[in-house]
Simulated scan of single mutants.
Amino acid sequence: MVLARRAAMGIVVLLVVSVLTFTLVALTPGNAAQSILGSTATPTAVAQLTKKLHLDEPLPVQYWSWLKGALHGDFGTSLTTGEPVTHMMASRWQPTLSLVFLSTLVSVVIGIFLGVVSALRGGWVARVVDIGGLVAFAVPGFLIGIILIYAFALKLGLLPLNGYAPLDEGVSPWLRTLVLPVVALSFGMVGFIAKQVRQSMTDVMHSEFIFTYVTNGFSRRSVIYKHALRNAIVPAMSYIGVQLVSVVGATVLIETVFAFPGVGSLAVSAATQHDLPVALAAVLFFTAYVILVNILMDILYVVLNPKIRMASS
């Protein structure tokens, strides 16, 4: 029932986002006709192309025409290239999802590991994690990307400078093109997640029920990984969820820095060229990702916390 409500709310969010995106891009000074013809085009030529592209129609009419097609799986054609939007997105979603998935995996695994280790060790380990997390969170991902490009691509020549190798070309080329973007994108998230997990884990380790397990003779490994970590992850999940959502904005910058042929770079070029159908498809792609992450976080809350499962039933 809860998931059904979430799904219904997600549909409403997609609709609202499409309206806002359409309006903002359409009201931005200039239009696709001007972008296609260039600054030297005559007003007459621009007006003729504007009419040909139906950009002279009222915004509600343009949006309704797009929406009718989108509901049937037709997101229109690019105003600048004439290529079907679905074809353009088909060649872009794999690089972006690969980048987001690996960055998420790296951030969560390393962040939780560092958070748990620093909580158990305390002292200078905890201080290093706190300071490192603060620095990592404060430094922009695109700046980390530039440093990585200079060090590992230009100076050492160990990894590709930019671009993307599809997975069907082999796992090794695929990973090589993803290493630097993934590190740049997950750098800040690792520090933030580690800090939140450390704090949550520290609180749980000082709780009464953990003391009870220890005094009853349970092994340290069992207490830490079966009881403490499970309970510590639940309050930290909200912070992790925020980071997994915020990765959308960072992905656009990282794809631009690494000339990564993903949905983020496509969205930037479409917005600057006033290519409404492409911009809409790209924004809806990221919106669907955010909705999916929120639904998955709700499911994880229920799995990790039996009290929530009992309350919902």
Rank of each mutant, 00 (worst) to 15 (best):
186 S>E: 07
162 N>Y: 12
243 Q>M: 13
234 V>G: 12
136 A>G: 09
275 D>Y: 09
16 V>Y: 14
264 G>Y: 07
243 Q>E: 08
248 V>L: 03
295 I>K: 04
56 D>T: 08
135 V>Y: 02
159 L>H: 14
109 V>S: 14
252 V>I: 12
2 V>A: 08
89 M>A: 05
259 A>P: 07
114 L>G: 06
191 G>M: 02
116 V>H: 09
22 F>S: 07
307 K>H: 14
128 V>L: 15
91 S>D: 13
178 L>G: 07
281 A>I: 10
63 Y>E: 03
132 G>N: 10
176 R>I: 01
232 A>H: 10
205 M>C: 08
294 N>Y: 04
166 P>D: 09
174 W>Y: 11
114 L>Q: 11
132 G>F: 05
42 T>M: 12
294 N>R: 09
78 S>G: 02
48 Q>N: 15
44 T>S: 15
143 L>Y: 12
77 T>N: 14
169 E>Y: 14
253 L>T: 05
219 S>H: 01
50 T>A: 01
181 P>Q: 07
31 N>A: 01
196 Q>N: 10
144 I>Q: 09
54 H>S: 15
236 A>R: 05
220 R>I: 13
43 P>W: 01
289 Y>P: 05
14 L>M: 14
190 V>G: 04
161 L>A: 10
272 T>I: 09
124 W>E: 06
206 H>S: 15
281 A>T: 05
276 L>G: 05
279 A>H: 05
175 L>M: 04
141 G>D: 12
250 A>I: 00
221 R>C: 02
167 L>G: 00
94 Q>Y: 05
128 V>R: 03
198 R>G: 01
183 V>A: 04
148 L>H: 08
27 L>V: 07
178 L>I: 03
176 R>S: 10
280 L>R: 05
140 P>S: 02
270 A>I: 07
121 R>L: 14
250 A>S: 15
69 G>M: 02
16 V>N: 02
3 L>D: 11
202 T>F: 04
232 A>N: 07
27 L>K: 10
227 H>I: 00
106 V>L: 15
296 L>D: 09
283 V>E: 01
179 V>G: 06
40 T>H: 09
149 I>D: 10
230 R>W: 11
258 F>E: 00
138 A>P: 05
217 G>I: 08
7 A>Q: 06
144 I>M: 12
184 A>H: 13
199 Q>E: 15
218 F>Y: 15
156 L>D: 01
71 L>K: 04
142 F>K: 02
244 L>Y: 02
25 V>I: 11
160 P>K: 08
248 V>G: 07
48 Q>A: 15
213 Y>C: 12
291 I>W: 03
289 Y>E: 03
189 M>V: 15
201 M>C: 03
243 Q>N: 13
123 G>I: 06
164 Y>N: 13
125 V>K: 06
261 P>C: 09
296 L>C: 10
207 S>M: 02
292 L>D: 03
207 S>W: 09
161 L>P: 07
271 A>R: 03
137 F>E: 12
11 I>P: 02
39 S>C: 03
151 A>V: 15
45 A>M: 15
128 V>A: 13
233 I>D: 05
287 T>L: 03
166 P>W: 11
54 H>K: 15
152 F>A: 10
93 W>P: 04
74 D>W: 07
43 P>Q: 00
284 L>H: 06
86 T>H: 07
113 F>N: 13
269 S>V: 14
113 F>C: 12
297 M>Q: 12
36 I>T: 11
290 V>A: 11
283 V>Y: 03
18 S>T: 01
59 L>W: 00
289 Y>R: 03
182 V>M: 11
